[in-house]
Write a protein that binds this DNA or RNA. Structure first.
Lengths: 233, 233
DNA sequence: TTCATGTAATTAACCAGTTAGTTAAGATTG
DNA sequence: CAATCTTAACTAACTGGTTAATTACATGAA
C-alpha cells in the first residue's frame, strides 16, 4: 500500500535492553522515575500529535520517541484518546497557569492587557508545537465533541471570562475602543497562534528563519504594538 | 478497538442500482454528468478533510457522501493524496482568483488594503470549511513537504508579493505604520481564519451562533476596523 | 432502421497492509 | 512482595487501493 505518511522510522535505537557497556543508563522506569516515564510519554505525544494530527499520530512512534515500550502507554493511559486528552490538559493547563495570574494582579486595564498578550505569546513561543496540537482539536467535528466541551469549560471559559472583564473595564474607562469580546478574543488568539503554526510554510516562502530568537523578539514587539494600536484609543 | 472516530455512517442510500419504481433517477455517472461526479467527489472531500484532517479522512466516507462508488474516486484521482491535493488547488485557487484582481486595480493603498481584506474575508465566510482544510495542510511535517512547497509557490507567493507591494506603497506614502510584511501577513490571515475554524468551539462557549448571517456581518465590520486601526496612521 | 462495436463512466467484491490495543511471562529494584 | 517496566507475539478491525464486470451511450456499417 505505502500510503501518504512518509515512512517515518529509522534510528532503530541503539540502546539494547537497558544495559550499556560501561555505565548504567538510568533506565526509565523500574522504580526509577515513574513520573519521568509518564512525562516522557507526554512529551513524545505532544510532538507526534502536533506533527501528524490526531488520527495520523502513531502510538508506536510515540512509544519509540519516548524510549518506552508501547505497552507502557497503555499502562499509564487508557487508550490513544485518553492520551490525547492528557496532552490537551498539559497544553491548556500550562496556558491557564501562565495567564490567569495576570488577571489577578491589580494593574490598569491597559497594562493588564499588555501583560496578558505578552504572557500568552511567551507561552506559545516557548512551546511552538502547541498551536498545532490545539488546532488539531478545534478542527474536530462540526459540533462540540464531548471532549471539546470539557476543554472549553475548564480552560477557555475562565480565561475568556477574565479577558472580557478587562475589556469592559478598559472600555468603560474610555481607554479601549468598544470591541465585542467575541470578536476580540479569537482575533488575538489568531494573531498569536497562526504565526507559529504557519512557521514551516513561511520558512519555505522567505529566506529568514521565522523561529530564530531574533525574529521571535521582533514578532513579540510587533504583536504588542499591533494589538495596542488596534485596541487602545 | 473502537477508537476516536465517532462511527459516522447511516443512510445506507435507498437508491438501488440505478432504477427506481416510477421515475429514473439521473444516476450519476454512466455517461450522465462526469463533470458533476468529479465535482461531487471534490465537494465531499472538502467536507471530509475539513472535519477529520488529512489522515482521519476516510475514502469510504467521501465516496458515500458523494453518492458514488469508492472506485470512482480512484478513477478520477490517483490516490487519497492526489485527491487532497486537488482539494487544496480548489480552495487556494479560489482564493487567489478572488483576491488577485484587487491588486490589479489602481486604488490608493488604503482602499486597496481594505478591498483585499474584505475579499479575503468574504471568500472564507462563503466557505467556512476551508480554513480547516488549510490548517490541516500547514499542520503537516516540520519542514516543507513537497506538496507544501508547491502550494506555497503557486498560491501564497504571488499573494504575499502583491500584499508586500501595497504595504510598501502605503508606508512610503506615510499612510501606513511601518510594518514588516512577514509580520503583517500572517496576522491578517490569523484574524480572518481563526474565527471560522474556532467557530464550533465558540458555539459551546457563548449562546450566540458565530456563523449566523448577522454575526458574520458584525464580524466583517470588526475585522476591517481592527485592521484599519492597527495599520493606518 | 437495426445491429455490432468501442469507449467512458460506474460498480460490487475483494485483498493486503496497517494499526490500536492485548496479553502472558518475566525482569528489576526498593 | 509489589510496583514499575520490557519483550514480543498476537488479533481484530479497519482502510487504501485494485480488479473484473457492467452500463449507457455514440458511431457507423449493413
Amino acid at each position: 500500500m505505502k500510503t501518504s505518511s512518509p515512512a517515518r522510522g529509522g534510528s532503530r535505537s541503539r540502546r539494547r535492553a537497558g544495559r550499556v557497556i560501561g555505565r548504567r543508563i538510568p533506565r526509565l522506569g523500574t522504580r526509577g522515575q515513574p513520573e519521568e516515564s509518564r512525562a516522557s510519554i507526554l512529551r513524545a505525544a505532544v510532538a507526534e500529535f502536533a506533527e501528524h494530527g490526531i488520527a495520523g499520530a502513531r502510538t508506536d512512534a510515540i512509544a519509540r520517541a519516548a524510549h518506552v515500550n508501547k505497552a507502557l502507554l497503555y499502562y499509564y493511559f487508557k487508550d490513544k484518546d485518553a492520551l490525547y486528552e492528557a496532552v490537551l490538559d498539559h497544553v491548556f493547563g500550562g496556558l491557564r497557569a501562565r495567564v490567569m495570574p495576570v488577571f489577578e494582579s491589580n494593574m490598569a486595564p491597559r497594562q493588564k492587557m499588555l501583560e496578558y498578550v505578552g504572557a500568552y505569546f511567551d507561552y506559545i513561543a516557548a512551546n511552538p508545537r502547541f498551536p498545532r496540537v490545539v488546532q488539531a482539536e478545534w478542527m474536530r467535528a462540526g459540533e462540540g465533541s464531548a471532549r471539546m466541551q470539557r476543554v472549553a469549560k475548564e480552560y477557555f471559559r475562565p480565561i475568556f471570562g477574565k479577558l472580557s472583564e478587562v475589556l469592559r473595564e478598559g472600555i468603560d474607562a474610555r481607554e479601549f475602543r468598544a470591541v465585542n469580546p467575541m470578536d476580540f478574543a479569537p482575533s488575538l488568539v489568531g494573531i498569536i497562534i497562526l504565526y507559529f503554526s504557519a512557521a514551516p510554510l513561511m520558512k519555505t516562502l522567505m529566506k529568514v528563519d521565522p523561529l530564530s530568537e531574533e525574529r521571535i523578539r521582533e514578532r513579540r514587539a510587533f504583536v504588542l504594538e499591533f494589538v495596542s494600536a488596534a485596541l487602545f484609543r
